[in-house]
Design a protein around this nucleic acid. Structure first.
Length: 564
RNA sequence: UGUCUCAUUGUGUAAUGGUAGCACAACUGACUCUGACUCAGUUUGUCUAGGUUCGAAUCCUAGUGAGACAACCA
């Protein structure tokens, strides 16, 4: 597995931003970034993009990246998610330099909030949320000041402390920044800094019943950690002036981290989040799919979660490569999922071993092969990789082939098995089909023919060319395995953008099917997580959730290009 | 009737005042112990209108279209 690398060819705007910043002498050339998930769900391919950017930019400039749990809202957070996020990031191949919880900084945030009150930059507001709607105004109309806006600092401070002491119910009071009620940017119209939430926090327990809002907490977290470049998605663009406002206040309080005699002033920039065709990325909706048991958990192979992709057989290198190829911009694009599938095919093609498996079996009898005889034939594990080695596969009189590989009446350019036509049984012999047996419905049940005894290994002794080659498994030696075929979860390319109906209306009822296939004996020993290419069929990953030895379960990763 | 952001082939992205390139997708062909892979090739693009300039995807103005913002979520 190659190490994650940031692109040195594409120079997207974030990279340019940091380059220019460094060229101007900022931070003495030191870059510190951070990836700040809220631990309220499993991370998905969209987070993978952010992770590749956050960690990748740090790496590209010789800097470091922190992992921080942005856990300022106890309502939805848990350690289960924290641990899963850590596992997934590690699996993707990234290493954080430092790890933080936002909750570790609650004391500092509280201190800053009190200082803001003392400096008349914040006040306790008693307006209800409904009343505030009226005061705040709408984007096109200015708001009007809260009646509590000019209350004395001592009064606000006392109330703020009583808030913390638990004297008030949720929603009755809040701490607001005093900025500009007429600002065209709603986020400047006295935004809430602290709210009351009588809810135990998964880490701080009942220590707090007041919690800072994202807009207040995030810049403080960045500043206290010494983050230099804070990258996030586009929806936070309008929050940036407020981010800078908080940083300015911290600067006034001399709270910015000082490195080599210089203040580290974090800056925020925004990039477009990832949208993929046929894919729902909203954490809330993914949660819904899990909660309503429409999928088999967050790591269901149909889920766009990192864990789902892993269970499906995606490799970290393929995901990183995908994130590299999609680039970074501020255009709200929708990437074709075909690019993701290309990336995994490209990687798997290099690293997977080839195995023979028959998923829709048709019996073939080699009439001139001695009954009861078995011989081993040698097959390369990966013809494109000389170091992949070889294996022995048993061949005998009766074999399974793919039903698709036989046509009683071949169409033109069909070079596989058909009466009167020669075909190569991969790695074994050249076989000439002579007849087939059909049942009452006309369905072919068995094919007969003879093999060229001088063609062991698959090459004709007289040098004649055989155009078709097919895979097979010996009936006597084949192992039955469960094969799960996963299709897209949604039938609509954009289930969230459809004019009418719920995204659930576009769930694909055939998104998962299970079949019994016959696999060559060597495959029975596949370890969970091993990935193989089933000849000409697709890539399959031995499922990490199977436990029965000798009866593996394989998940299809991605099909090969459709054959004509 | 607000502020901010965005617009380059079917999709995504590069070109930062000087030949519009790359990848995916699609289509041809060659090769092949699988029709996959690989290789070669083809098709398709600067939202519109003005302006600045020897020269504009790039700078300016206006328009069009898309998105974000009106949680005590992040």
């Amino acid at each position: 597995m190659s190490e994650p690398t940031a692109s040195d060819t594409s120079r997207h705007f974030l990279k340019q931003w940091i380059e220019e910043d460094l060229a101007a002498g900022a931070n003495d050339g030191k870059v510190v970034t951070r990836f700040p998930p809220e631990p309220n769900g499993w991370i998905h391919i969209g987070h993978a993009k952010a992770i590749c950017i956050d960690f990748g930019m740090a790496q590209a400039f010789g800097g470091t990246c922190h992992l921080r749990m942005d856990d300022t809202n106890p309502s939805k957070e848990s350690d289960e998610y924290v641990e899963q996020i850590k596992r997934d990031i590690t699996w993707l191949g990234f290493k954080w330099d430092k790890f933080f919880y936002a909750a570790q900084m609650f004391d500092k945030m509280w201190f800053i909030a009190e200082e803001l009150i003392n400096r008349s930059h914040a006040y306790i507001c008693e307006l209800s949320q409904e009343q505030w709607k009226e005061y705040r105004g709408v984007p096109t109309q200015p708001g009007k000041p809260s009646p509590f806006r000019d209350r004395p600092a001592e009064e606000s401070l006392a109330l703020f402390r009583r808030m913390r002491a638990g004297e008030f119910a949720d929603g009755t009071l809040c701490l607001r920044a005093k900025i500009d009620m007429a600002s065209p940017n709603i986020h400047f119209r006295d935004p809430v800094l602290y709210r009351i939430n009588h809810m135990p926090h998964y880490h701080t327990g009942d220590t707090w019943c007041v919690y800072p809002m994202y807009d207040f907490a995030h810049p403080i977290e960045d500043a206290l950690e010494g983050v230099t470049h804070s990258m996030c998605t586009l929806e936070f663009e309008v929050h940036r002036p407020l981010y800078d406002w908080v940083i300015d206040r911290m600067d006034e309080m001399n709270l910015l981290v000082v490195r080599d005699g210089k203040k580290i002033r974090p800056q925020q920039r925004e990039f477009a989040r990832l949208n993929l065709t046929y894919t729902v990325m909203s954490k809330r909706k993914l949660m819904q799919l899990v909660d309503e048991n429409r999928v088999d958990g967050w790591d269901d192979p149909r889920m766009p979660t990192v864990a789902g992709l892993r269970r499906r057989g995606y490799t970290p290198a393929a995901i990183r490569n995908f994130c590299e190829r999609i680039g970074v911009s501020k255009y709200e694009s929708e990437t074709d999922v075909a690019l993701l599938e290309f990336c995994i095919r490209e990687d798997l093609n290099k690293i997977t071993q080839r195995r023979m498996a028959v998923l829709d079996p048709l019996k073939v009898v080699v009439d001139n092969y001695p009954e009861g005889q078995t011989e081993m034939v040698t097959l390369s594990n990966n013809p494109g990789d000389p170091d992949s080695g070889e294996r022995q596969v048993p061949f005998s009189r009766e074999i399974w082939i793919e039903r698709d590989d036989f046509m009683e009446v071949p169409e033109k350019k069909f070079f596989r098995m058909a009466p009167g036509q020669e075909v190569r049984l991969r790695g074994a012999y050249i076989f000439k089909c002579e007849s087939c047996i059909k049942d009452a419905d006309g369905k072919v049940t068995e094919v007969h023919g003879t093999y060229d005894t001088l063609s062991k290994g698959g090459n004709a002794s007289d040098g004649r060319k055989i155009k078709g080659t097919i895979h097979w498994v010996s009936v006597a030696h084949a192992v039955e395995a469960e094969v799960r075929l996963y299709d897209r979860l949604f039938t609509s390319s954009n289930p969230l953008a459809e004019e009418q109906g719920d995204f659930l209306d576009y769930l694909n009822p055939n998104s998962m099917s299970t079949i019994k296939g016959y696999i060559e004996p060597a495959l029975a020993e596949a370890a969970p997580g091993d990935i193989f290419q089933f000849e000409r069929l697709a890539y399959f990953c031995a499922d990490s959730k199977y436990s029965k030895p000798g009866a593996p379960v394989f998940n299809r990763t991605v099909t090969l290009r459709d054959s004509k």
